[in-house]
């Protein structure tokens, strides 16, 4: 079996893709292990964290099946609000997540949306992935939330950080009674 040498460009791309995969998997671990303060450190201070709603529209109007950025959404948070969400869970009297839920984030189909091979300090790039967020609480209450994510990642002090997250959930009527979890 002969081994074809990979080009330097190809190797750089694979290295960056692997770094993004590691980053998302690490992020999922922090969330599912409830290391929320460490998770917050992975977000830039000017992050836009947005989960629009979905609508039943015709094929002709398919570009309108996601609510616009100035419309009502499920989430449209800045860093300060995300910190408040974490602090709320940490009060110990946030009944919607007390006793604590069991949550798993599966992140898959990870792609670099742009044909980039490197990300220098301060630069940003767009990535795409699918998520499955599973929540089980108390005895039998169970939610499966599935959809796409478009993340803008930025290189900050050598590390990847989330600068913008668009979360596209595949439900129009939300079938979970609330959204206490992060995506």
């Amino acid at each position: 079996m002969t081994q074809t040498a990979l080009s330097a460009e190809r190797l750089a791309y694979l290295d960056l893709l692997r770094e993004v995969e590691d980053f998302f998997h690490h992020e999922a671990d922090l969330l599912d292990e409830r290391e929320y303060d460490q998770w917050l450190d992975l977000l830039t201070d000017d992050i836009v964290y947005w989960m629009p709603m979905r609508k039943n529209v015709s094929y002709k109007n398919r570009d309108q099946d996601i609510t616009a950025e100035d419309d009502i959404a499920w989430f449209h948070d800045d860093k300060e609000t995300l910190v408040k969400r974490v602090r709320q869970i940490q009060t110990g009297v946030h009944w919607a997540d007390e006793p604590i839920s069991r949550i798993s984030h599966l992140i898959t189909n990870i792609r670099l949306a742009d044909s980039v091979t490197s990300l220098d300090e301060g630069e940003t790039m767009v990535t795409k992935c699918r998520f499955l967020v599973y929540r089980n609480r108390l005895e039998t209450e169970t939610d499966f939330l599935i959809g796409r994510r478009e993340d803008t990642l930025q290189r900050v002090q050598g590390e990847l950080r989330v600068a913008r997250r668009k979360i596209i959930l595949d439900q129009s009527v939300l079938l979970a009674k609330n959204l206490t979890m992060f995506f």
């Binding site: 449209h76 948070d77 709320q88 946030h94 939300l174 609330n178 959204l179």
Partner: peptide, 14 residues
Amino acid sequence: YMRYSGPAGMTEQD
């Protein structure tokens, strides 16, 4: 309003 009410609203969740 969105961080107060609705399923992701921090008040209404509880």
